[in-house]
């Protein structure tokens, strides 16, 4: 039944099914925002690791003199400080990656990456709100 009082449910999502779907640009060992797949790919010890935009809470970077630090915060249980923590999780007892911080000397590119992540997040949230309004 479709009514507003229904509890928020976790919806499954998936970035890629096969490794040949990874964009070729992951070879540069830099952060890649794959808008088409709603995914941010992060280099961790030489491996391209996808994170779906639905797992990302926010991203911001802090430029220093000759490098910048990009911090990506992910959604995880126990973060609902000061507001209702109604974010649904598939398995709240799992281990969660809560944040990843990267350092880069390529400040302009990281600035673009940060903006791309923020915009992608905004787009997805906006589309979901619109969808929900249509359902109501």
């Amino acid at each position: 039944s479709l009514n507003g009082t229904e509890e928020k449910r976790f919806k499954r999502f998936e970035s890629y099914k096969r490794d040949n779907q990874l964009p070729a640009s992951v070879a540069n060992l830099g952060i890649v925002v794959d808008k088409k797949s709603l995914t941010v790919i992060l280099p961790i010890m030489g491996r391209p690791v996808p994170f779906h935009i639905h797992t990302i809470k926010n991203a911001s970077h802090t430029p220093e003199n000759d490098f910048t630090s990009l911090r990506i915060n992910f959604l995880s249980p126990g973060q609902g400080v000061g507001r209702k923590d109604d974010q649904p999780f598939e398995d709240p007892n799992a281990h969660f990656i809560r944040s990843l911080t990267f350092r880069s000397q390529d400040i302009d590119r990281i600035d673009n990456v940060t903006k791309d992540i923020q915009e992608l997040k905004k787009d997805v949230v906006r589309r979901e709100t619109e969808k929900k309004q249509l359902e109501d």
């Binding site: 060992l29 830099g30 249980p77 709240p92 969660f96 911080t101």
Partner: peptide, 15 residues
């Protein structure tokens, strides 16, 4: 340090 963008910190939520 071998990556263009270098991982410096990782935080886990462990129940």
């Amino acid at each position: 340090g071998g990556a263009k963008d270098q991982l410096v910190e990782m935080r886990f939520y462990i129940p």
